[in-house]
Computed example of a mutant assay.
Amino acid sequence: MPHVDPEPPASPSAYSARTYDPAAMREHYRAVGVDEAALGSTPFQQFTRWFEEAVGSGLYEPNAMVVATADAAGRPSSRTVLMKSFDERGFVFYTNYGSRKGRELAENPQVSLLFPWHPIARQVIVTGVAHRTGRDETAAYFRTRPHGSQLGAWASAQSSVVGTREELDRAYAELADRYPPGEQVPVPPEWGGFRVVPEAVEFWQGRENRLHDRLRYVRTPGPGEEGWRIERLSP
C-alpha cells in the first residue's frame, strides 16, 4: 500500500504555542557569483580555495560535514562528522567501523558528503565511493587525538544500545584508570578511517532571487589520467 501521511491536527489551536512560521523564514542572498573561468582545474583546487575562505571567515567548525549513507536495501541515514584531511585522493573522516555508518558503508560504499557553510551562503556536495584507510594512516591520526578522545573510542560501542549514561561513564572511568595520561592508548581494532573518493563535486553559491550558482565537477575517465568536466546546473 502507498505511504499515507498522518492527518493534520483538527484545529490550529493545537499549535497555538508556536511563535514562528517556517514558511516565512528566508534569507535574501547578495553574494558575488561564481565564474566558471575562475574555477580551479580540479575540485580539490577549488575546495582548497573555498575551505580557506570558510576558515578565514571565522565559521564554526568549517570541517563539519553531513555524511549520508544507505544500507543494502536503500534505507538512508545521515549524521554530522568532522573531516580530518583532504587531498587529491579524497576526503577522510574517522569512525567506529561497527557504527551504523560503518556497517552501511560496508554494505554499500556509495556516499554523499555535504559541507553546510550557511553563514557565507555556500555549500559543497561530494558524491563518491568510500574506502577504508590503511591501519598505518589510521594509527598516525589516532595518535594526534586528545587522550580523552582516544579513551572515548574504546568506551563507546558506537550506535549500539546502552542501558544508562552511568554504564558509559563507568566504562570510560575504567579505561582512564588503565591508561592514565602519558600512557599510550592502543588503536581500537574496529576504529578507523574512510576516504571518500569523489565522482562528482558540486559548489553551490547563494545568489539573489534564488538564482543560485551551482557548478559541478564530474570525473571523466580517459586513456591516461582521469580528468574533470565542469557543468553548470539550474538552481
Rank of each mutant, 00 (worst) to 15 (best):
V4R: 14
E7Q: 13
P9Y: 13
P9H: 14
S11H: 15
P12W: 05
A17F: 15
R18D: 09
Y20V: 15
D21I: 12
A23T: 14
M25G: 12
Y29T: 11
R30A: 15
A31Q: 15
V32M: 11
D35V: 13
E36R: 13
A38M: 12
L39I: 11
L39V: 11
G40P: 04
T42H: 08
T42G: 11
P43V: 07
Q46N: 03
W50G: 06
F51I: 04
V55R: 14
P62G: 09
N63S: 13
V66F: 08
T69G: 00
T69L: 01
A70C: 07
D71K: 00
S78P: 00
R79W: 02
R79Y: 03
V81E: 01
F93Q: 01
Y94L: 04
R100W: 00
R100A: 01
R103Q: 10
R103M: 07
V111R: 00
S112V: 05
L113T: 02
W117A: 01
H118I: 11
R122T: 02
R122H: 11
R122P: 01
Q123F: 03
V124M: 03
T127G: 13
T127Q: 15
G128N: 09
V129L: 09
H131G: 04
R132D: 00
D136W: 10
E137M: 07
T138F: 05
A139M: 06
Y141H: 15
T144Y: 08
G148M: 10
A155W: 05
A155T: 07
A157Q: 13
R170D: 15
E174M: 11
L175G: 05
L175C: 09
R178S: 09
R178M: 10
Y179S: 07
G182Y: 08
G182C: 07
G182M: 07
E183D: 08
E190G: 09
G192P: 03
F194I: 02
V197E: 13
P198A: 10
E199V: 13
F203P: 01
W204D: 05
R207F: 14
L215G: 06
L215Q: 09
L215V: 14
T220C: 10
G222R: 06
E225I: 04
E226N: 14
E231G: 04
